[in-house]
Simulated assay, not measured.
Amino acid sequence: MKFDPSFDSGVLIKRYKRFLTDISLEDGETVTIHCPNTGSMKNCLFEGEKVWFSVSDNPKRKYSRTWELAQTSAGHMIGINTGRANALAEEAIKNGVITELQGYQSLRREVKYGNENSRIDILLEDFDRPNCYIEVKSCTLLDEGQGYFPDAVTTRGQKHLRELMEMVEQGYRAILLFVVQHTGIKSVKAAAHIDPDYAKLLAEAHKKGVEIIAYSAELSPSEASLVKSCPVKL
């Protein structure tokens, strides 16, 4: 995924009111930009470190700039815009990077499914085998050398696990795909210390046949892509 133009940069001052972030531009001007990450962003907020943002030409937007990348004090890159995770996953499937998800006839996004009024992130369909339902989650929490998901209690994430288990029970293939948008994360694990219910459901889903995989992203102000499999500790 190439970014054209490449992202502009600044220095993080603070994030507040969930969707707002103040940064200092290279000329010293302080501006407010949109934060597209609705999570807690635990261990992703490094005040005084460099950040990158995209710029929209949509005149209806109150804040034309959107926070895209952060840099940690250790020099790692973090993908702040969780909305890009699905596009990264789709691109990686089409380019053959995610080897577990090859050979399907078609790919569709945001398809309604399940009994809890959900939309699956990616649906792979084929004439000769069961459909494959893929729920995509962006993983950015690095804590004491370990990558974790989620970074806050997620009832929505719990619902998605129940929906995936339901698909397995109906004879379909179901995948939970962690898109690792933190270059310092080397493996992913359920954050039982943050959301024990999610961790229990994840273990249950795995036992019932939901496939749980993770792929790591390379990130820069000019492009991003999933490049390799990342271990999941279950």
Rank of each mutant, 00 (worst) to 15 (best):
L176T: 02
Q146E: 11
F53N: 00
Y113L: 13
T155E: 09
E49F: 02
C35L: 07
E47V: 13
D22Q: 13
S187H: 15
F46E: 08
K228G: 09
Y172L: 07
H34T: 08
H206V: 13
G83F: 08
P36C: 05
G10D: 07
S229Q: 12
L20M: 05
K189M: 07
G79R: 12
Q71D: 07
N81Y: 04
P231A: 15
E166K: 08
R61I: 07
G184T: 04
E49G: 04
I175Y: 00
V180D: 02
V179M: 10
S216M: 03
T30G: 05
G209Y: 01
L176S: 03
D197A: 09
L69R: 06
L124N: 07
E68H: 12
K186R: 12
K50S: 03
G75C: 10
I93Y: 00
P221F: 13
Q170D: 14
Y104V: 13
G114L: 07
K186V: 13
N58G: 09
E163F: 01
S6A: 14
M41N: 02
V136P: 08
P5K: 11
H160T: 05
K200Q: 06
N37A: 12
S220H: 04
C132V: 02
P59S: 03
L69W: 01
A152H: 10
L164I: 12
L101N: 01
S225P: 04
N37W: 04
L201E: 10
Q158A: 15
E223R: 14
G28T: 07
S220E: 02
G114A: 06
L12V: 07
Q158K: 12
E49D: 06
K208S: 06
H34P: 01
V179W: 03
L88Q: 10
E47T: 14
V51F: 01
N81V: 09
I122W: 01
S24D: 10
A174P: 06
K159Y: 04
D126E: 11
N37C: 11
I98G: 05
L25D: 04
T183K: 00
N81E: 07
E49Q: 10
E223A: 13
A199I: 11
P196I: 12
Q181C: 11
W67D: 02
I33H: 02
Y172P: 09
V179Q: 10
R65P: 03
L20C: 02
D22C: 14
A190M: 07
D143R: 06
D143V: 10
T183E: 03
S106N: 12
R18P: 00
E100G: 14
N58I: 15
Y133Q: 08
P150K: 13
I13C: 13
G184R: 03
W52C: 03
D151V: 15
Y16F: 15
R173Y: 02
P196D: 06
Q181G: 15
E110M: 02
E49A: 08
D197L: 15
L12D: 00
A192W: 06
V111D: 05
P130Y: 12
A203L: 09
Q105K: 14
K208A: 09
M1W: 07
S24T: 13
V179G: 04
M77E: 02
G103T: 11
G39C: 09
N37S: 12
L201R: 14
R156A: 14
Y63S: 01
D128E: 12
D57R: 12
S222G: 13
K14H: 10
E125I: 05
T72D: 06
V210A: 05
I212S: 07
H76T: 12
S24R: 13
E26H: 09
K50A: 05
